[in-house]
Each structure stands twice: as structure tokens, then as C-alpha cells.
Amino acid sequence: MCLNNPLISVIIPVYNGAAFLTAAIETIRQQLYEPLEIIIIDDGSTDNTGQIAADLGRDIRYIFQSNAGPAAARNTGLLLASGQVIAFLDVDDLWAQNRLCTQVECLTLHPAVDIVQGLIQDLELVSSPQIPSTFAPVSDPYYSINLGSAIYRRQVFDQVGLFDESLRYNEDMDWFIRAWDHHLNKKQLAEVALFYRKHEGNMTNQRNSKQAGFVWLLKKRLDQHRRNSRLPNQPSYQPPASQPVSLTEYLGWRK
């Protein structure tokens, strides 16, 4: 257990994720991190998420709101959070042991760092007659914009703003692009922080929706540029002031 720690608020947005909620809370408790505040934002679930949350313990804050999407759910969590440090957990993901301690130590050691980001390990469902329904690692761990792989100083959300609730997809990418615009200092730690469970059944549909979402993101950027009268293809366009790292690197994507 690590000591002298800042309060971390863990925000769990959940929509019909009753089947995963107990494991999500367990993965947080296994961190043995204190002090910790767990906030579940139920984004209008119609399953028994509420009942399961009630059984998980009185130390957990459970908020129900009408379905408004993941960005709105996370924003509600942020507005309620009292921690100096914020972490997000999607209800069907799992954390690596000790990742909170490791990442907080890094944040404490480096006062200029705003975000500490770890690696993501994908897991895929493997079934066999002997072992039904087991998630096993696939491919190498990687950095990406999955919000759950990082921890954040609370004040970064004052600087960058909250998540854009008009986006149904890619609100995480949108936020990280804005964080890059604001020159937020993000440090990567080459340790797995997050286990991401891939669900084969929905990948295609999600891909199509995410494609549409990504085009929306570009449209949003074009509109922003128009408001500032500096379209990227105009001679008057000035790229943002020099950045310590490229956007691609910032988002964790390398060729």
C-alpha cells in the first residue's frame, strides 16, 4: 500500500452494465489505495445496475440520470468529484494491480505533469469446452486515448473543459486533442494500467458508429476554425504555437 496519497475520485459511467459492475468495483478495491472515492454514474440503465450498486457498499456514491451518453455521465461524475486526482473506469474494463499507486507516485514526483498514462492490454473472449468464457490477452500492450488508462489532476478539467456532450462517440479523442491544444503535460509510464475487454459481437457496429463520430469530430474542428477565421487550408492559417510533441505522439499513436 502506498501512503501520503492524494484523494482519488474514480468515476464509473455505466449504461446497462449490471453484469460487470461487481467486478469493476472489485478491481478498484484490489488496488489497496487510500483515500479513494468511487462514483458510479448510471446513465439511465434499464437493467438492475441500481440494485447491484446498492449492494456494493455504502462508501460508493451512486447517481442515476436519464440516458445522455458517456460524455454527460463522466461530466456529472467530474462535477461531483472531490478528489485532487481523477481516474475513470469503464464498467467492463479492469485495472492492473497497483496501477493507482504507480501512477500517483509519478504524478507526485513530477509536479509539472498533468496526466499520467499507462499501457492498455486488450483481452478477447476465449471459449473452449474446458474453459467457458475466459478473457485472454491479445496483441501487445499499447498507448491510446482510452480515458481509463490514465489519471488526471482535477484542475486539468478546468483548463481543458469537460467532455463534449454533443458527441456520442470519440468524446475521448476530442478531449485529448483539446488537452494537446492546451499544452497539457502528459507522461507515459510503460506499464500496463488497463485491461480492455473486446466484445466480438459488437465491434462492427461500433466501428461504423465510430467512423461517423470521427467525421463529426472533423466537422466540429472545421466549425471551430471558421469561428476563429483560420481555416487550415487558408494562407493566413497559423498552426498552433510550437508543441513539445506532435498530436499523433500525444494521442499515443506511432507509426
Binding site: P13, V14, Y15, G17, F20, G69, P70, D90, V91, D92, D93, I120, D122, Y142, S144, I145, N146, L147, Y169, N170, D172, M173, Y196, H199, N202, M203, Q206, R207, K210, G213, F214, L251, W253
Partner: peptide
Amino acid sequence: DVDESGWPNT
């Protein structure tokens, strides 16, 4: 890549 970062609309 963004597929890897899904909101659990699953």
C-alpha cells in the same frame, strides 16, 4: 485505434 477505447455501449 479508437475502436480500442470504447465506451461500454456493449
